[in-house]
Structure formats: C-alpha cells, structure tokens
C-alpha cells in the first residue's frame, strides 16, 4: 500500500517538475508601469523602470511591496525621506543591509531610480 502511495507521489512530483520547467520558459513578467513625465524629465534617456527592476526589485519587490528590503510603495518612501537628497544619499552610500550604488550607477541613474520610487511606486 505504502509503495503504491510512493509511486503516486513520485508521479505527481515528476509532473510538478515538468510544470515548473514549462513555467520558467513561458511565464512572462508583468510590464513595469511607464514612468511619468516628471521622472523622465529628472534624468532624460535613463530607463528608470528598467534600472529599478535590475537593481532594486530583487530586494524591494517589483511593485515596491518589500521583501528583504523595506516596502517602498504606497508613499512609504516619501514619508521616510521627505527630503529627496536623504534618499539619494542612502542609495549612493548604502546603510545596514542596503548595498551602496554610488560606484555602480551614475548620478543620473540614481536620481532616476529615486524619482521612480517616489513618483511611480508612490501610487502603488
């Protein structure tokens, strides 16, 4: 009886493996929201949504809902950093578990990310 159950479980797990592999190749990510004019104007030519997705979303979530890093959306980041320069300083220099991006991103790119979190994610 237990052997039969083991066979059934193994078959189901094999099916789950196949489904997982298929999903890995077929599931498309949700397109990031387009940056509003204010964000585009802050750093023209910089893909702020793409930068956020590459550099920040892994910890803060694609929609800024948080993860390893704190929640950013829903106006949280603006409430925590009323002064934009303070947020730029944290992104540039890092703090606690947050890595410093000053050596990896240009000032324009950091500005674009900061504006993105304050303008686009604030609505989330």
């Amino acid at each position: 009886m237990l052997r039969r159950i083991a066979m059934i479980v193994e078959t189901l797990v094999l099916a789950a493996v196949i489904v997982t592999v298929v999903l890995m190749f077929t599931n498309s990510p949700t397109a990031p929201p387009a940056a509003p004019a204010a964000v585009a104007a802050a750093a023209p030519g910089v893909d702020s949504a793409g930068l956020y997705g590459d550099r920040c979303a892994g910890c803060h979530g694609g929609d800024g809902s948080g993860g390893i890093g704190p929640k950013l959306n829903g106006g949280r980041v603006v409430a925590q950093f009323p002064n934009t320069a303070d947020q730029v300083a944290v992104v540039t220099d890092g703090r606690r578990g947050m890595p410093a991006f000053g050596a990896r991103l240009t000032a324009d790119e950091i500005a674009a990310i900061v504006e993105y979190t304050r303008a686009v994610l604030a609505a989330g």
Binding site: I5, A6, V17, L23, G58
Partner: peptide, 27 residues
C-alpha cells in the same frame, strides 16, 4: 515501511523546493 517512506519524503522535499527554485531562477 521505511523504504517507501524514504521515497515519499524525498519526493516531497523536491516538491517543496520547486516553487523556491522557480522564484530564484525566474525572478
């Protein structure tokens, strides 16, 4: 029963790892 239980626990360990691996790899 240890043999079949060993097979079942191994299968379940793989099963619970799949959504974890999926997020790691896909996301």
């Amino acid at each position: 029963w240890v043999g079949p239980a060993h097979r079942i626990s191994g299968s379940l360990a793989l099963l619970v790892s799949l959504p974890v691996a999926y997020h790691c790899l896909w996301s």
